[in-house]
Amino acid sequence: MGSLVSFKNVIVISGNFPILTGLDFEAGPGEIVLVKGRNGAGKTSLLRAVAGLARITRGSANVLGVDIAANPADVRHRIGLLGHESFLYEDLSARENVRFVLKATRSDPSNAEAAMASVGLTGRLADLKVAKMSAGQRKKVALAALLAREPELWLLDEPHASLDSWTRGVLDATLNAKVSRGATVLLVSHESHHGSLVPTRIVEVGGGKIISDTNATKPVPLDPPAAAKQGSGNVA
């Protein structure tokens, strides 16, 4: 099967500053690609470019079979992005936010309650205004909206940040299940432990380019306790 994401010599310029500088990147179905790199290396910019939120100045960029530089609107609704910003409305409740996302994406509205319940947004919490929520609870609302949408391509920027261990487990289990059915995950993280999420590849970004691409032929969990249980080694 071909690549779901295919970037060749992609250049993205923000103002006068190049943030992706001739980046080559591929990701296929069923992959969990861990994107690493120092602050300002271009990790978040890579995710935004894949989501069609960064204007691609030069190069070839294909996402889910669509030229994302030319026709971003044709493919964005098939992409799920969980970034530093939650995309939530502070004056709406958790339930209203999730329902709005489902209406906007023309997804099945009946998914809302199950997705919210899966991350613990039940009872009064579901009807609480987002403005009154903690950072972790807001992340759960954004996550519930993403889970309810069921995108084909998951772009996750520090998805575990602010989440409690139980919700991290839910996220990891859900992503593993989606990936086993052919979804693709691009995961940006500074953390050394990723729970039960098992990257199939680790790419390192530096100066707006991919500087290393390690194919984990024998994927192993990065979480030391989980790795110890399975008797696995470290990912290079």
Partner: peptide, 18 residues
Amino acid sequence: AIETDDGAGDGLLVYGVD
């Protein structure tokens, strides 16, 4: 401003809203 708070405008684009 409703759409610039917490990146909601980017969210609308990702959701495919016209």
